[in-house]
């Protein structure tokens, strides 16, 4: 085999292997670990809800897909199957809150209504409440 054919074959092989490795890397990419992530915004639950209620379009443009660190007081707690935990944070409104869903939590019972919490999560947008996903508790203060 001529030398240049070998060189070309080597490069083709190299490119194919790198492409496969890159594909595997992206395919298996994990979600951002919120307990270590740097927040784009730090805000209270009440202020966050107010921004969405005042102008959903501009608040969505500002917050959706961003990492938020939110301070609030736990209102209600709901555990779904696979220990997926959803808590609501109280606001000044009786109807709306900030609803935060955690991926499988080892000990959901440590969260109690009335406790103050600081959590980080990714903002999904607004229905009747502001919704956060992929949440992690940063600080939990028992009342």
């Amino acid at each position: 085999m001529k030398t240049y054919v070998k060189v070309v074959l080597f490069f083709v092989f190299f490119i194919v292997v790198s492409a496969i490795l890159a594909a595997l890397y992206f395919y298996n990419l994990k979600h951002t670990d919120m307990s270590k992530a740097h927040p784009d915004f730090v805000i209270t639950a009440t202020a966050l809800l107010k921004e969405f209620e005042d102008n959903e379009t501009s608040a969505s443009a500002k917050y959706v897909n961003k990492i938020l660190e939110v301070d609030g007081i736990i209102g209600s707690i709901n555990t779904a199957k696979d220990n997926i935990l959803t808590i609501s944070l109280r606001t000044e409104s009786d109807l709306s809150s900030v609803i935060c869903t955690f991926p499988a939590v080892a000990d959901p019972s440590k969260f109690r209504a009335g406790d103050s919490i600081t959590l980080r999560g990714e903002c999904s947008g607004f229905l009747m409440d502001v919704l956060l996903n992929n949440c992690a508790a940063v600080n939990l203060k028992v009342k």
């Binding site: 779904a80 869903t101 947008g125 009747m128």
Partner: peptide, 26 residues
């Protein structure tokens, strides 16, 4: 999976409304 679906069910008429954010699917 989406665990943030809002819904109202009126059992006197059978009417129901569900609403979900696409971004909430995990």
């Amino acid at each position: 999976d989406n665990n943030q679906v809002a819904g109202v069910l009126d059992v006197s008429t059978g009417d129901m409304v569900l609403q979900a954010l696409v971004k909430s699917f995990h």
